[in-house]
Amino acid sequence: MELKVIENATCTFCGCVCDDIELHADDVRIHQAKKACVLGKSWFLNHTAEKKYPDALIDGQPASLDEAIEVAANHLYEADMPLVYGMSNTTCEAQKECVAMADLLGALLDSHTSL
């Protein structure tokens, strides 16, 4: 397995968003996160590219992504007052999609900030 080095990678574990991290990774996991602090290191090293979980779960049972998307869309559409919440540990691109979806649904929209 080939070892890649990624320079100036970005850590998003805390609000500092350090963008000077040097990552050493193979195909499956990150082995080293140079310059990152203890929190950042454990964040980088704890995620892998392994398939640890099923693609999706519906009522606790493994399911395919397509099925899960269909069921999720159904629940959201059928609801009178759906809620879209969270958006901390995700990208701005995904956040934008969430806002668009909430708009389409006429939903409540909220993030961690309100806690």
Partner: peptide, 9 residues
């Protein structure tokens, strides 16, 4: 609320 969509939390 009668349906919650939770992402990144």
């Amino acid at each position: 609320t009668d349906c919650a969509f939770i992402i990144g939390a």
